[in-house]
């Protein structure tokens, strides 16, 4: 690491330290810049209802036993306990105050309904109508807690591809499912396929990254919460994403393939292709789109011509860049 970079690093740390001091004081006073009041009303619940606590929700009905158990084990479930020192949450944090929903449900009535083999039901209409909220409002239910706590996995969320496409947090996360509230890496593809059926089809082509085989995962390349690059890529550029694994092609090299190598998708398609090496088009057509083919002289054998007009990378085997000059002394990617 160069001296300049080190200095930059220390400067950043110093800035951070000053900021922390200021942040401690400002934490409790901090508010969103111009909150979206219309959505706040949607997710606040009935104003004529009172908060009654989790004990009157999950613990009151055996119907919710599984939900309760999963929820208790989730990150938010841990936050039910005041002793944890964490910000407290409970059912009503998301669903709104519940007094109106259970006002007709006395313990005796619940026992009687259960004894009859039926499930006691709350008056769900008095809760926040989460299912029918606009996606942005749905996400705000989560974001009202997952902001102001330095969760940088959501840094690019608001202008991300998913946010713009009205994908809400609950479309991918089941907050009642316990533990990490998210699917396991090996199961992410099935979750993503629910919307991205075209990508699933591309993975069925003869050449594909081993996503259907559950050996690499969608989240290896994509950050579902958004990123600085297009397509919710995990890294800042396409090249930076691809060279996570294909680092030998990253360079820099003495001889670069113009600035093509900065954009791998000019020649490769990442999900699936009928062509080997996930090429967008087959060689030599792929290369002949920009380059003139080699000369043919009348005296050449058919075999020589075959050699010229076949897979260009048989000879130009360092096509992603090279540090060695070709026999002509130029960077022809053949050495």
């Amino acid at each position: 690491m160069g001296r300049t970079a080190k200095l930059k690093g220390w400067a950043m740390l110093a800035l951070l330290a000053v900021g922390i001091a200021a942040g401690c004081a400002a934490l409790k006073e901090s508010r969103p810049i111009l909150p979206i009041k219309e959505y706040e009303k949607m997710i606040a619940g009935r104003l004529d209802a009172d908060y009654i606590g989790t004990d009157n929700c999950l613990k009151a009905c055996h119907v919710h036993d599984k939900n309760r158990r999963d929820f208790d084990l989730s990150t938010m479930g841990a936050q039910l306990s005041r002793e944890s020192g964490l910000p407290l949450v409970n059912c009503e944090s998301c669903h709104g105050p519940g007094s109106l929903a259970v006002e007709d449900l006395t313990p005796e009535k619940v026992r009687a309904v259960e004894a009859a083999g039926k499930k006691p039901a709350c008056d769900y209409k008095t809760f926040v109508d989460i299912k029918n909220l606009p996606a942005q409002a749905k996400s705000l239910i989560c974001l009202k807690c997952h902001t102001a706590n330095a969760t940088f996995n959501l840094h690019n969320w608001n202008a991300s591809t998913h946010s713009i496409a009205e994908v809400a947090c609950s479309d991918c996360h089941n907050i009642h499912a316990g533990h990490n509230l998210k699917v396991r890496p090996r199961d992410t593809a099935e979750l993503c396929y629910k919307c991205h059926q075209d990508v699933k089809a591309a993975f069925s082509l003869p050449n594909h990254h081993p996503v259907p085989e559950k050996k690499i995962f969608c989240i290896d390349c994509h950050d579902t919460h958004g990123g600085p690059a297009e397509k919710n890529l995990r890294r800042e550029t396409v090249k930076a994403t691809c060279t996570q694994c294909h680092a030998e092609k990253e360079g820099p090299f003495v001889f670069e393939h113009a600035d093509n190598s900065e954009e791998c998708t000019k020649c490769h398609t990442p999900h699936g292709s009928v062509n080997n090496n996930l090429l967008v088009l087959r060689e030599p057509f792929l290369c002949l789109q920009c380059h003139s083919s080699h000369r043919i002289s009348a005296g050449m054998s058919a075999e020589s011509k075959q050699a010229f007009y076949t897979r260009c990378t048989d000879c130009h085997s360092q096509i992603h860049g090279t540090d060695l000059p070709s026999p002509s002394g130029q960077g022809r990617f053949i050495q």
Partner: peptide, 9 residues
């Protein structure tokens, strides 16, 4: 970044 919940983010 600013708060994720504002009218301006």
């Amino acid at each position: 970044h600013t708060s994720h919940t504002g009218r301006i983010v």
